[in-house]
C-alpha cells in the first residue's frame, strides 16, 4: 500500500514540488504502477536462481581513448548552455 507520506518522501528525494492535488493522483498512480510490477512475484520460479542480468559476467572494455563529442553537440539539448557550461539559473521562489 502506497501512502501519501511515501509520495511526499519520494518527491522530496527527487526534488519535486507537488501540489495537494498532484500528491493525491500520484498516490493512485504509484499504487497502480507497483501493482503492475508486482504481478511478476506471482510466478513460481521453484529453486531456479536468477538475477536481473541473466547471470552474465565480465563485459569489460579496454582502456583506449576515443574522441569525445563536440562541445556544441553536448550542449545542444540545453540550448547551447552558457560559456561552455550547462547552466542553471538561480531558483526564484
Amino acid at each position: 500500500m502506497v501512502t501519501k507520506e511515501d509520495i511526499i518522501k519520494l518527491a522530496k528525494l527527487g526534488k519535486l514540488y507537488l501540489t495537494e492535488e498532484e500528491l493525491d493522483s500520484a498516490v493512485k498512480d504509484m499504487t497502480n504502477i507497483i501493482g503492475f510490477a508486482n504481478e511478476i512475484s506471482k510466478v513460481d520460479t521453484g529453486d531456479t536462481e536468477f538475477d536481473n542480468i541473466n547471470g552474465l559476467e565480465n563485459a569489460l572494455r579496454e582502456d583506449i581513448v576515443e574522441e569525445s563529442f563536440d562541445e556544441d553537440l553536448i550542449l545542444k539539448n540545453v540550448d547551447g548552455g552558457k560559456d561552455g557550461f550547462f547552466y542553471i539559473k538561480k531558483y526564484q521562489n
Binding site: 572494455r61 563529442f69 562541445e71 553536448i74 561552455g84 557550461f85
Partner: peptide, 14 residues
C-alpha cells in the same frame, strides 16, 4: 571512452 585528463575546456571530455 572519454579521456580523464584534468582540466581542459568545460564539457569537452564528454
Amino acid at each position: 571512452s572519454c579521456r580523464t585528463d584534468f582540466g581542459g575546456e568545460p564539457n569537452t571530455h564528454c
